[in-house]
Design a protein around this nucleic acid. Structure first.
Lengths: 246, 246
DNA sequence: GTGAGCGGTTGATCCATATCAACCTTGCGA
DNA sequence: TCGCAAGGTTGATATGGATCAACCGCTCAC
């Protein structure tokens, strides 16, 4: 039944129908019969070395990307050399949606570690979305989720204090790791304090102090990039008086 | 040729094919032959009184809305009574895209003045997007633009100072008024200082001081909600050392 | 094994914006 | 017409996080 899809020499080829990211990625909600057509859509995969760009701001937009392994950050470089990190992306996340609006990518996507992505031709995706209702809807959901989470970020940046921002960040990571079958309480950060700071609208020293503070309070234990969440209840309470983001 | 579309007793009925927002809204890039099918999609219009909600956080998502006249803010209410404004919307803007992801709206949309919207059934929109390629693409562009502008907001909130934020806000308004055929240099604000502050991650006093400061510097003239931009060049320069958002 | 460099922590000080407070202006209803 | 409430401005003070600076501890190349 899957014999039509060849495994490439690189061994990279992993089609949607046998991909373990199934329930996080675009194929969600697509029937078996349509799945084979998806496999055709996601024909190419790419490996990106740590610190290398998947795409850069200004690059022509041709495809969106699904993270298969590894992780990425999105950022915007400022003229004066500073950067604003606008997101961190892990397996199953879809990258590049910003490019649809102008036909050019509007940010950089940089690998935080050696990573692999599925390249999804945007032209083919639109074609297929016109035929497979489930794909169309799932694609819309992915874009909409991005809008919702960006709104959440605006709230964080617009109205939360440093400690609250870090608490929200850690809980968000925890939740995303959980969704991917990893431990909710113990994980490795792939990004530096400076990148976290940029993302949260804080300086790296402030991020570091917030980590130390949480550790002193017994909320988490920190060893370099290794984080263990000890009291998620209190972390949640820190941001509870905030958002009733339904 | 348009005789099939009746004008309702309320006189509200304005179909896409004769709507002057044509080049800002969903119909952009859709051929004449398909336009009549769009008219059918946008069958209902709604009037919303000033301060009234178009939808609320938690409401089931059934439609997206195109602003025909008036303006709206999107906000998230916090448990402690504070609000975070996540956007201002004017004619031609599409509201409600946040609801696709969960099937529930995740923010409130409140009219800033008496307004009218076109109600666009989401089910019908998806159906039609599968048939009309141009509609599909334009819809994707609208969502993608939202993502891009939210990213811009994250940069503003994460890395700009109060004066820079207000400059960016005024220039953004100016640009949007221009796109709608109004003066780029003279306009009325529909929102209060507090709403601007919430949107920009500042307190209302800080917004007020920034306005006064700009006026003293001869950058703008302010009289209550009436704004005149006197030196857009210097306003732009204020945020230039920032963003090279392609 | 050792030194250099990057990432991280911590302390001291500074500054932009929040906070608190007084007052002004405008519009509207009694 | 008056008075009141909501929105806006301005001043004085407080404070959270930025900035500047020193130092620590991995990691990696030689």
């Amino acid at each position: 039944m899957m014999a039509t899809v060849a495994v490439t020499p690189t061994g990279l080829k992993k089609v949607c129908s046998q991909c373990n990211l199934f329930e996080l990625c675009l194929p969600l909600g697509i029937g078996d019969s349509d799945m084979l057509r998806l496999d055709e859509l996601v024909a190419v995969q790419r490996r990106i070395k740590r610190q290398q760009p998947l795409y850069r701001s200004g690059d022509p937009f041709e495809a969106v990307y699904a993270v298969r392994t590894g992780s990425f950050k999105s950022d915007i470089l400022l003229e004066d050399g500073r950067e604003q990190v606008t997101g961190f992306h892990m397996t199953g996340d879809i990258l590049g949606l910003d490019g649809i609006s102008t036909g050019l990518h509007s940010c950089n996507a940089i690998a935080l570690e050696d990573s692999e992505v599925c390249v999804i031709s945007y032209t083919k995706l639109e074609e297929l979305a016109r035929v497979i209702e489930g794909l169309q809807h799932q694609f819309h959901k992915v874009m909409s989720s991005e809008i919702v989470s960006d709104r959440g970020m605006m709230m964080l940046l617009g109205s939360m204090h440093a400690n609250e921002r870090l608490a929200a960040f850690l809980l968000d990571l925890s939740q995303r790791f959980t969704a991917r079958g990893f431990s909710p309480t113990e994980f490795h950060l792939r990004m530096t304090r400076e990148e976290i700071g940029s993302y949260l609208g804080l300086k790296l020293e402030t991020v570091s102090r917030a980590f130390s503070h949480f550790q002193k309070e017994g909320l988490i234990s920190v060893q370099q990039k290794h984080i263990r969440i000890l009291d998620s209840g209190r972390l949640k309470k820190m941001i509870q008086h905030q958002a009733s983001v339904c």
